[in-house]
Design a protein around this nucleic acid. Structure first.
Lengths: 103, 103
DNA sequence: TTATTATGGTTACATAAAGTTACCAGGTAA
DNA sequence: TTACCTGGTAACTTTATGTAACCATAATAA
């Protein structure tokens, strides 16, 4: 019996998702509670509106985030984690514990 | 008592590390056993030599990976995870379990 | 009335990061 | 001699990200 000689595609895909800039921090930020566009932006000021918008679309397409437009004036948008997204956030706790210990 | 209103710098830093392309996969790949440059490249063929070399230098600077040059002919280089790196790899198992369930 | 503010974007452009191809040194093998 | 293997590096192209200005709508301030 030899050791693994190729990567599992699910593993590849999860690192492809997490390997994009800002994704981890956005999910971390939404773990607390749902947040509006400008609230996420306030939590992560170095993340530009352009890229934030792009990342949220991708996360929505991935089924990790839910986008809810509130038809108020001015129109607001609330982003929340889906079940899939919440479980992803929980799995990242281990990484954050590592960070607390080693960084 | 209000909810968190800013990010912990350790959390920011760990996502900064993992948010770079290929980093997660490289660490995953080294979890099995130490590997040479060309072996990592064979495991992750889409990762170019230029970027692989860049990532390994960064991971070495971060104390996550150890670089060992074997003075043989032709000279080979073996990369292994440090304790810090191994624990990081372990913390990523939770993420991989999420991937297995949801992707 | 006429500005000003806030929302969640989008657009055009500049810079940084990643991908591609060719190449190098030193030794080995054919 | 020629070709090959190793772990890179250099120059260049393409993609991703950062920056600044702008938009429509409606509420509010002057």
């Amino acid at each position: 019996m030899e050791t693994e000689n190729k990567l599992c595609s699910k593993v590849e895909e999860c690192y492809h998702i997490l390997g994009k800039k800002w994704v981890g921090l956005v999910i971390h930020t939404l773990m607390e509670e749902p947040k509006r566009f400008s609230e996420i932006h306030a939590f992560i000021p170095d993340l530009s509106k352009r890229v934030l918008n792009e990342r949220m679309k991708e996360l929505e397409d991935n089924g990790i985030v839910l986008r809810n437009v509130i038809a108020d004036r001015p129109v607001r948008t609330e982003y929340s984690l889906t079940k899939k997204g919440t479980e992803l956030g929980r799995s990242l706790k281990a990484l954050e514990e590592w960070a607390d210990k080693w960084l």
